[in-house]
Design a protein around this nucleic acid. Structure first.
Lengths: 342, 342
DNA sequence: TTGTATGCGTTATCAA
DNA sequence: TTGATAACGCATACAA
């Protein structure tokens, strides 16, 4: 079944307006390069036929698509959604379109999606974090598709990125927690395997511990997948095992909120019995009870800066360079001084 | 600046493998229709050259894109994000790709995005809710692009959709609230103008009021934009105006959580002084304190069913038909009986 | 099983 | 200012 009546083409418009296809094309793309009267005729024909240009043909002939691809782990995570929304709004203002794809945190799907977006003619790509098979970067280079990494600013990486220093931000937060007397500390981390941000946050805590004269190896770490439920389960494991920490860091707010819920269920008072610290500062954090102490990340700003950087590259050849934004601790109700100084 | 080395094409692969372009094309699309030895040669060439097909050319030659477009109000709303994630996962399993665009709740942007996606060759479109200029539906028909409405099942609409009956679901919830003795009721609604779901939820409450012998006009309604903050502001307005309601419905959970926060700030006890009712049952609802009474919507199921329906149409010509899923009240901590029976 | 030849709807170059 | 026409990279009907 295919009753699809053929879409009107440039040619149809040209016939109807009594001009050549070249003129119609110019009318659409450079209206000021055609005679006013001709333009009127053409525009009328376009409206009458409800013509709209064929993207594939256009891409093939023009050898560019005005399209930028974005590949994120999941749309269900509010932090990516927010950053992308800002990214898209900025692109749109400059006549670019965003294509999104998600990977469910699976590297092989990410590679598949990267190839798909390149195949679709994406003029550039937005990627989350630095971590990925070097082959992919080589592939992108061969294809001549520039890629910009976001959500991470890592001074040790050479590849340009727009993001914040996950490690330093977490160190700043952890230093304050240590200052409050906490010595027995745990971390509920996102899976660190293919995730440089998660690793950086972990190491950030250890940095602060070392600075405070503690052994970084004392940090109790449990890794888990994304989700409130997983945060709750991990928290329960930590609190029912032997050595109870007085402060539990979480790799992100969603895990932290799960921990908070679990604490309530276990009858553990927050922050009196245990402090809970999140990361991201999504809406959830302010709504939680008590409101969550967390690290605020300027998601929208990142999305916007990334868009401008890519547009600058594509339109004016301005090279990409690293742009650092800053994530800052926000102290709310879930953090208090440790009861027993050690 | 354009040092983009030309991407390898079918032709390059054909040369390298010593076969014709047709054979390479077949190798990629119907591997079993070519000789094993030939296929090997070709596949090697493909790998060596890192060939990947050009989407635009493919689309133009094949006259289909295996792409389905989805247009949503905003990615920042968790309910859309979740539904889309499921939609995309289902599409991917069948070899389809999803293209998303967002409209910021602005009809003119929606129209622009619809045209953009059609121009990009979307084989079908996913749209949220029925409400839009009839011209748009005509346009889609002329272009031969099928569109499926989701998030709404409305028996009075002829257009096929996959969704739930917003009105009936809200009526069910409101009936229970009335049964608990509430007679003085308010609604913090999303803007109803171009939003049939918001209107249906409003009318749903009024249906229940009429059933209970109350005057539907007594429903106190305040409209506001999406966001926790807006919910909080609206709640404060309602509670500081003359006649204080004993139950406040909210068009969605995000508004409800704002109301909850505002109640805490105003020293109004929930649910003792006032009951608060949300809609959607996003994660926020369970985390709120007290946990939110709300209407659970099977977002992921909707996304999945929608994907299967469209694939059935595109691949086997199975016509679209209305699919109803069911949204159900979930009673949690924010709803209690009215103190004073009237 | 493989190859040849044509068309898909644009843009862009070159002439007129 | 306008028109012919040659790419662009692939799929496919048809021929071999």
């Amino acid at each position: 079944m295919n009753f699809k009546r053929p879409t009107p083409t440039l040619h149809d418009v040209a016939l109807k307006a009594g001009v050549s296809t070249a003129t119609v094309s110019r009318c659409v793309n450079f209206p000021d390069r055609v005679n006013t009267r001709t333009r009127e005729k053409v525009m009328n024909a376009i409206n009458d036929l409800d013509y709209s240009p064929n993207f594939g043909a256009k891409a093939m002939a023009a050898r560019r698509t005005n399209t930028i691809g974005a590949i994120i782990p999941t749309m269900e995570n509010a932090i990516f959604a927010r950053g992308l929304q800002a990214f898209q709004e900025a692109l749109r203002l400059h006549g670019y379109t965003m294509l999104v794809a998600s990977t469910s945190y699976r590297p092989e799907i990410e590679e598949e999606q990267i190839r798909a977006l390149v195949g679709r003619g994406a003029d550039a790509l937005l990627l989350i974090g630095h971590d990925r098979d070097p082959e992919i970067y080589k592939f992108l280079e061969r294809q001549g598709v520039p890629a910009l990494v976001v959500w991470a600013y890592d001074p040790t990486e050479t590849r340009p990125s727009v993001g914040f220093n996950n490690r330093a931000a977490m160190t700043e937060m952890a230093a304050e927690v240590l200052r409050l007397g906490h010595r027995n500390i745990a971390l509920i981390s996102a899976n660190t395997e293919q995730n440089d941000r998660a690793r950086a946050r972990l190491v950030g805590i250890q940095d602060a511990m070392a600075d405070a004269g503690q052994d970084p190896a004392d940090l109790q770490v449990i890794e888990t997948a994304y989700g409130i439920e997983n945060g709750a389960i991990a928290f329960e494991q930590i609190m029912t095992a032997g050595r109870r920490p007085t402060a539990v860091f979480c790799g992100n707010d969603v895990l932290a909120v799960g921990a908070l819920r679990s604490a309530r269920e276990l009858g553990i008072a927050v922050p009196d019995d245990v402090s809970i610290i999140g990361f991201d500062d999504i809406e959830l954090a302010q709504v939680a009870d008590p409101p969550l102490t967390t690290v605020h990340v300027p998601h929208r700003a990142m999305g916007q800066r990334a868009a401008l950087a890519l547009i600058g590259l594509l339109q004016n050849g301005e090279p990409l360079h690293a742009i650092e934004v800053f994530a800052k601790p926000v102290f709310r109700g879930t953090l208090a001084a440790a009861k027993t100084a050690q």
